[in-house]
Design a protein around this nucleic acid. Structure first.
Lengths: 344, 344
DNA sequence: CTGAAAGCGCTTACAG
DNA sequence: CTGAAAGCGCTTACAG
């Protein structure tokens, strides 16, 4: 059925099919101008020997590699995994495969970016939640099609605003959360924010600030974290040290931070939701079990949409066509951490 | 600082440094025989222009690509993500990057495998929980160094028993769980098993069967699932239909299935742990919150160990050296789902 | 220690 | 519709 050892090359396939390398290459790249007869002959040989073209040779020669580079900075745990799963789902329908790299910090992210964008040959790239510094002029989108996921360029990011993107509707989501808290009678809100180089974190924080401006009756405060459980916990412990009389509600930038807040409050003997409400964002699997009020973030959808945008662009090859910005909605999940305890 | 557009090539670096391609290549590959002076000159140019060698050209030419292919079949959600994180951690210390692909089924797994093992040029491969069919003769480990993760070859898998592996001590872990249940007075146990082509699933099931043999007083039953929440739920609902009087305890193959069992029992109004105990395996983040008794599986450690084995082999290049099989321990986490309710 | 040359396995104009 | 040829950007013997 198949040879052991070295797999054969295009050249050998050509010989076996009594034709030339060029023609074999044509059937590989689905070029139309090949006679049905020779095409059949070649396909038989390929099939029979399980021939697979060498990706690296392909990449070097400038053809399609079927490779999609997915760059992610490590934020949160489940987040990128689900998004990647979504990307992979669509990619595999297009016979594509992911070359996924995890960046350790902004420098590494840029490193990887350049590797694939110019040096390496991938068909396209998806940047998951890239550090915003990337967009601010240090590097420019190159010739490879790129899609920003959970991020988007604007006027201040020269070049990047013309890059396809898929983001989540943070403004709508956060506003719903805040309105919900307002409805519950909460007046003093603390936003447990994320770092200023993460798009979603910035977007959510801005929404929080805007909401305060729109509702003069509210009192607001902001503390910063790294969107991790531990940093959420530490930040809130610190906050509680300075505020013996805590606020009405903690509005976390994400669920992980919310879990940390939870722990901190528990350690200080402050009851949720009796004394203080807590909300998150993302809808981590654990959140449902915990009863955390949060925004459901359709991670896989985000990934799927990003991949769809990318493959669309690859198909049409219209580099000129204007950028598309998809926005995915989040849905409010009201659970026990933001509701008054049942009067039982 | 750096040129826009096309990134430069080795040839141009050579010209700028007033030397030859060969010599530039030598400093790139850390070949010792380069005079300090020219080395410095070349490094300056590289640094100044941010030159990055083209991965594909490198791969084609047969050099180190710094690429590690990580193949995973999609089992469980958090599982592979954490393992990959562990791998990535070690890889990045060695300037390596992951080319991770998610296989959709065994066929695809083999496809990918061959792509990277022979066709493509990667420095090494890590196979995470590959379908066992892979090991049973259809394909053979090739010249690229490979490490099996959460899997291991044996006498029946010609060739694969000489491949490095890292596994988890299922036998010890499962035995501990079973002994714990025994101590709690449970006599009738149902093992909610996983598919027969997953190493860990098979290993755990075997341990369950052996335990029954060693403890004649016990009554045991086995039902099969896909190790997912939904299949766990369905399987147990089915079981309950046929067994109006359920067993003492459900011993799940993994936490996801255990969550499904939980749901099924809840739907039937059967209380945990009052009427029946439930245990899992993996220690999913959600399990702690849920109070699920389980085995803690150190996912990141698994990945780190796998990567370590791989880079060790790459460093020594001793293909001849005998295979190393690392075994990582799991630790029992006794929580509420297997304990009698507190007599309060 | 250094360079010129061959070659890795493809793709893509260029001529037929 | 098909082939011969050049070339993608590296690495690696091979001669100095």
């Amino acid at each position: 059925m198949k040879k052991e050892g070295k797999s054969l090359t295009l050249r050998q396939v050509a010989k076996l099919a009594r034709t030339s390398k060029s023609t074999v290459s044509r059937v590989l790249t689905k070029h139309p101008s090949v006679s049905p007869k020779t095409r059949a002959r070649i396909e038989t040989v390929i099939e029979k020997h399980g021939f697979r073209p060498n990706l690296f040779a392909r990449g070097l020669a400038g053809g399609r590699t079927g490779l999609i580079a997915v760059l992610t900075s490590e934020i949160g745990s489940g987040f990128y995994a689900e998004v990647i799963k979504g990307i992979d789902h669509v990619a595999s329908q297009h016979e594509g495969h992911l070359l996924s790299s995890f960046a350790h910090g902004t420098e590494d992210y840029i490193h990887l970016w350049r590797n694939f964008a110019s040096g390496g040959r991938v068909d396209g790239m998806i940047l998951i939640a890239p550090p915003l510094d990337i967009l601010s002029g240090r590097v420019q989108p190159e010739d490879v099609p790129v899609v920003l996921c959970a991020c988007r360029g604007d006027r201040n990011t020269r070049g990047w605003e013309r890059i396809d993107s898929v983001t989540v509707n943070n403004e709508k989501g956060m506003t719903e959360i805040l309105r919900h808290l307002l409805d519950q009678g909460h007046k003093e809100l603390v936003h447990v924010a994320g770092p200023s180089n993460i798009y979603d974190a910035v977007d959510r924080r801005r929404t929080f600030e805007q909401f305060l401006l729109d509702h003069p009756g509210l009192i607001g405060d902001i503390i910063e974290t790294h969107m991790t459980r531990e940093s959420g916990r530490t930040a809130v412990l610190e906050y509680l040290r300075n505020h013996p009389q805590p606020a009405d509600a903690f509005v976390a930038c994400n669920d992980l931070a919310a879990l940390g807040i939870f722990e901190a409050l528990k350690e200080r003997g402050i009851k949720v939701p009796e004394s203080v409400a807590v909300t998150g964002c993302d809808d981590d699997p654990a959140s449902e079990i915990l009863g955390l009020t949060t925004l459901h973030m359709p991670m896989q959808d985000l990934g799927r949409e990003a991949a769809r945008l990318l493959f669309d662009r690859l198909a049409t090859k219209e580099k000129a066509s204007s950028a598309r910005h998809s926005v995915v909605e989040m849905t409010l999940r009201v659970r026990s951490t933001s509701l008054p305890p049942r009067p039982s």
